[in-house]
Design a protein around this nucleic acid. Structure first.
Length: 292
DNA sequence: AACGAGGTCAACCGCTTATTA
DNA sequence: GTAATAAGCGGTTGACCTCGT
């Protein structure tokens, strides 16, 4: 007994979208919205596509606020930090970067960032030593069509050099822990590496590893005139600002996280952050190497 | 010039979560 | 309270491209 299919797979077109389909979807969506139901949308719009496919096409590509192009160094930092905190929660990570989609961030991490960070390391989990090097040029394939840019120069002696500088990363974290009512907006500053090992920061770490239910995201509007998703909008509801460097509340969580300190220390958290990495690890790359 | 290897990204799949009846 | 349905999400796949040999 399988799940009932969301559409008749035999009668829907699959594969890449044509410009015509894009135009149809876009114009219909801009005029009528989704009508509150993506499943019915293709029929109403006159598209022979699965509703899920339409939704994905819109959210990941056609939305007007989508940002196409190179990820900035700041975005790199945000992705790395958040990935380290919460793992592959791409929608949450993407929500911190307006115009970026979870798919974008996921692809960027898997194809570029991961290599950028670990490409220079010797003891990677590679079986055939075919791991690309840091200075590999960006292929001019689909990537260069979408991202006509040159890769940033990377020092050869550090797989994680970006993070060895002090990063004033501001990470807008979205959460709604425990009660679902007491999410706080709070700027959090680490003044020393010791704080990363404090009970307070363990709570922060735990936050990263918490279940999906602990996150608050603004749900996708069903109204086409207001379409967005967790990739581009911040959870502004339920958030109140708390000034200063106050500690974490048992029932709440922060949304701003400033890191004026060397983030290497933070990289000793486990990938899923429910556990610490080896005490001996001194940077992100070392941690990952030692984890594999 | 041909071909295989590898990189990239859009799109799909299927599971989980949220919402509605 | 429960079942059905839709939306959301992360993992994976496959087409297309460039590069190296």
């Amino acid at each position: 007994m399988g799940r009932t299919p969301c559409c008749d797979k035999d009668n829907v077109k699959r594969g890449p979208w044509s410009p015509d389909e894009d135009a149809t979807l876009k114009s219909y969506l801009e005029t009528h919205g989704t009508g509150g139901n993506w499943i019915l949308f293709p029929k109403k719009a006159g598209l022979r596509r699965c509703g899920k496919s339409c939704r994905l096409r819109w959210l990941n590509y056609l939305r007007p606020d989508i940002k196409h192009g190179c990820f900035t160094e700041e975005e790199d930092n945000i992705i790395c930090s958040l990935y380290n905190q919460m793992g592959s929660r791409w929608s949450v990570i993407a929500s911190q970067m307006p115009g970026r989609t979870d798919n974008d961030v996921k692809n960027y991490w898997n194809t570029k960032l991961k290599k950028k960070l670990f490409g220079g390391k010797q003891n990677l989990r590679t079986k055939n030593s075919k791991e690309p090097t840091n200075n590999a040029t960006l292929p001019g394939s689909a990537a260069s069509r979408a991202l006509p840019c040159v890769p940033k120069a990377e020092p050869q002696d550090s797989a994680f050099s970006t993070f060895q500088t002090q990063i004033p990363a501001t990470l807008h974290m979205l959460t709604d822990v425990n009660s679902g009512l007491n999410a706080y907006h709070q700027t959090w500053t680490l003044n020393s590496p010791d704080q990363l090992y404090s009970s307070e920061v363990m709570a922060f770490s735990d936050f990263g590893a918490s279940s999906k239910k602990s996150y608050t995201t603004v749900s996708l509007s069903q109204d086409g005139s207001n379409i967005s998703d967790s990739s581009s909008i911040a959870a502004v509801d339920k958030c109140a600002s708390l000034p200063g460097n106050g500690s974490l509340d048992d029932s709440g969580m922060f949304t701003d996280f400033s890191l004026p300190y060397d983030v290497n220390y933070a990289m000793c958290f486990g990938e899923k952050t429910s556990e610490f990495g080896p005490a001996s690890c001194t940077n992100f790359g070392d941690f990952f190497s030692s984890s594999y």
